[in-house]
Design a protein around this nucleic acid. Sequence first.
DNA 1: CCTTGTTATATAACGCGTTATATTTATGCC
DNA 2: GGCATAAATATAACGCGTTATATAACAAGG
Lengths: 164, 164
Amino acid sequence: MSDDIVRALGYLCLGSRLKRIGEQVQADTQRIMERLDVTLQAGQYPLLAAIDRLGPLSVGELSEALGVTQPGVTRAAGLLAEAGYVTARKEKADQRIRRLSLTPEGEALVARSKREIWPVIEAAVRNVCDTLDGSLLDRLDQLEDALRERPLHNRALDREGARL
Amino acid sequence: MSDDIVRALGYLCLGSRLKRIGEQVQADTQRIMERLDVTLQAGQYPLLAAIDRLGPLSVGELSEALGVTQPGVTRAAGLLAEAGYVTARKEKADQRIRRLSLTPEGEALVARSKREIWPVIEAAVRNVCDTLDGSLLDRLDQLEDALRERPLHNRALDREGARL
DNA sequence: CCTTGTTATATAACGCGTTATATTTATGCC
DNA sequence: GGCATAAATATAACGCGTTATATAACAAGG
């Protein structure tokens, strides 16, 4: 920790850093879920939440909503289907589209999660973040927007603006 | 983006969010490196930088310095050794320890990186982050400290302090 | 000194993201 | 109607992290 190189390197290692912290948050979240007897991978919650919020979605729509590539969604959806929380049905009008919806078990899981699980997780995360001075979330929003607007590889190497 | 669920869920999905942003930063960084003809994985730089800064390190010391588990270091070091940037030598006093140091090629790569590569990457990352109001890095430091001090699974479910 | 426990590293198996490519279904144009 | 192209999803292969476990070297007590 005193010799934490990734931290010491600062902006140079921001990517590694964000991933590392994200993995820790996910791991901690997983432990919370285990204690609440949720047999699910923490990273699969967003998919369920997306369908819950937006209604049945196609693979592509989910990919968009989750900010994850399409093969990632295909696999995650496959696992959730195997676990019985999600089903796929081919769209009548366009047989290429597989529309994913929650099964009754999925609905039940989401309902219980809304009631008992998500508030606990969110409170815990908020509890950590409240110790920080100022809003981390706002900064992450802005960071993502800025990266989408003009990615790093565009900010480097270009004459205008790269070196300021 | 308007229907970005992970973003919309806020603190509940902070882990997924951090990982996602971290992966994007890494991917962008990779593109910068490609354009500068660095044949290396972006995530391997921290390991080289650690040895450069702290001198030859054992696998365990690297694991500590990078905040990565030991098997992760073993594999990364294996790849870097294969690429010719790093060599391992068993310690005389304790044959269990494999001390990793930079090869001449590794030294050269680090030297060039310090001169030509890292400043470019760091400037690009700084460029994005400068658009944010306030220091993101400070908040990440604090977040990591806070998580280490008391992990999420400790902040949830405990009577004292969890819900306030 | 040898057995028992501990420490350092390696290996195996898996999670979950990626890119690249194959497959299936629609679409559009001659 | 048939053929080229495009779109939606699936599959394959890989990167890099993890946990759990095996192996090898050291340390210590009877």
